[in-house]
């Protein structure tokens, strides 16, 4: 399990780097799917199989397909790849990368004396469902309303 965690974590980091540096949008999307799947494996290795499955189905499956459709609708050809390359000059990277590095350094600094080991006991569907339809039932209802709102507004926005 531990090995799985580190391998999947490495894959996730590498493929995410691929997402942000790729100039071909379809390649970037595939890197993103890879990253999401790797995170799903991380979830599994942490003993959360239910969210791992949901990550794979909804994130890597449904949402990414949505992206794919949009990219197809926008019909980005070779010229957009060239354009992406011209947009990714080194000076555009410096400041954001620096900021993100500082942020990461701060996180690491905060985590420096966090020395708790996780024993990945499996927390399965049963427990999650008991919580979802127990104390969190109101949040579930709210989430459904959010989804409904997203549905309506997406329909409205995408209309001609």
């Amino acid at each position: 399990m531990m090995i799985l965690f580190y391998i999947a974590g490495t894959v996730a980091v590498v493929s995410t780097v691929g997402v942000i540096v790729q100039s071909n949008i379809v390649h970037a999307l595939i890197y993103l799917i890879l990253s999401l799947l790797a995170v799903a494996v991380v979830f599994f290795s942490l003993g959360a199989p239910f969210v791992a499955v949901l990550e794979a189905i909804i994130y890597a499956g449904a949402i990414m397909v949505l992206f794919l459709f949009v990219i197809m609708m926008l019909n980005m050809g070779q010229h957009t790849i060239d354009q992406e390359k011209t947009w990714m000059a080194a000076k555009d990277w410096a400041l954001p990368a620096g900021l993100a590095a500082i942020l990461l350094a701060q996180l690491l600094y905060v985590l420096r004396d966090f020395q708790v080991d996780i024993v990945p006991n499996e927390v399965g569907v049963l427990e999650v469902s008991a919580l979802l339809f127990g104390p969190y039932v109101l949040a579930v209802e709210l989430a459904s309303i959010l989804l409904l709102a997203g549905l309506v507004s997406a329909y409205h926005l995408a209309k001609k």
Partner: peptide, 11 residues
């Protein structure tokens, strides 16, 4: 970028 900078500052 400004938001991120502010975030970094606050943290």
């Amino acid at each position: 970028l400004s938001m991120a900078a502010g975030l970094v500052l606050i943290i």
